[in-house]
Design a protein around this nucleic acid. Structure first.
Lengths: 212, 212
DNA sequence: GCCCATAGGTATACAGTGTAGACGTATACA
DNA sequence: TGTATACGTCTACACTGTATACCTATGGGC
């Protein structure tokens, strides 16, 4: 059975959560499973395939079990999209190592396609013309993944922490707009509410695209 | 002088362009410079710092030389933002290896801060309230970098190439929205015009935020 | 009972990685 | 002349992914 494969995957996930993606070496995974490194190759094709399987595993937990055909979806389209977006962000925050992989690996696993289908469905219900649906799906998912990736990789938080002394303006007027915005740049930027505001804006963008 | 450091950087850039980011090993760079691997450590602190310097080098070429105070910026705010966005996309397409690094390394180099300042300035001119400017800068840059990264890493192009036989619907009605959109999913998705359409939408989003 | 194919695991080995540490040398300044 | 500093080399270490070869236990057909 594929029980062993599952065991390997769980071990790799645990190591990634504990020690980061760099900690996931074939030897480390093998040791955790209690087996020789080369034994892994019988179950996963290699390191690349192992990484793919890891993100696939995470994606499979994104959506609730597929009862979408049994019962009517309760929420409005925008609430469904927002819920999915929040789920992605939460997943990336729990497993920061997954962020770079989400960009490189295309969504080909059945679970990933299922998620895309949920987005398509919501966009159609929103009134987006069929022709525009794939584009707006890519726009939305790019933003959500990009936000989460930026967040966990420090691209947002460590940006420009009061540069060059505590006065607002840079030496010799280097960055005038920064100077003017100093009071707002000083705040630590609550990323949870920022995500909600962004999400709101993007959903309005979709509404606008639907009404054309 | 730092001439040697520049030489090392150029060598690393050239290797990344030719053989990808994985080709950039200390040994490879050293060989190209004509020196022993350990000699690099006198000029760049280590591999991580080398990578940082590489993206810094690319960013420094993004904006025209700083004459922003000599002459008035000619274009409207939205044209300026669009130009910068297109420049980022072009840069990533020319140097695909840079995409993942742009997400992880925060914008702390002077050139990066200068680019952010340009965006701030445009957003202010657009009429965005000061309080909202940093957020919308992050939203815009996240989208632009995310789009470019997705594009060069194959997240867009290799998505679902007519899955499971050439009929639109999946076996046993797995993905209804996919089925409905089949005609549009079949097109190869012109990413250049898609980028322009997205950009247009995001700039409208900014306009909407300005008018509140 | 016998035989053998197959699945799963092990041992060894190879080429490559980043970099710590010790050592050398040449130039510039006191 | 002496010495400090910048720059480079050499060696070595602890890793990485994985190709290859070998071993072992289990199950099915005869």
């Amino acid at each position: 059975m594929g029980g062993r494969r599952e065991e390997i995957l769980e071990a790799a996930l645990a190591i990634a959560d504990e020690r980061g993606l760099d900690g996931v070496s074939m030897r480390a995974v093998a040791e955790r499973v209690g087996v020789t490194p080369m034994a892994l190759y019988r179950h996963v094709g290699g390191k690349a395939e192992l990484l793919d399987a890891m993100v696939g595993h995470l994606l499979s937990a994104l959506l609730p079990p597929d009862r979408s055909r049994d019962r009517q979806e309760p929420q409005r389209w925008d609430e469904r999209l927002a819920a999915l977006a929040r789920a992605v962000r939460a997943m990336v925050r729990r497993h920061p190592w997954a962020a770079p992989l989400l960009f490189s690996r295309p969504a080909v696993t059945p679970d990933a396609v299922r998620a895309v289908d949920v987005i398509y469905d919501a966009l159609i219900e929103a009134g987006v013309p069929d022709r525009e649906v794939p584009r707006l799906e890519r726009l939305l998912s790019t933003f959500v993944i990009g936000f989460a990736a930026s967040e966990v990789s420090g691209r947002f938080t460590s940006g420009d922490p009061d540069p060059r002394g505590h006065r607002g303006s840079h030496p010799e007027g280097g960055f005038p707009a920064h100077a003017r915005l100093t009071p707002w740049l000083r705040l630590p930027a609550d990323l949870a509410t920022e995500f909600e505001a962004d999400l709101d804006d993007v959903l309005r963008l979709i509404e606008a695209a639907a009404g054309r």
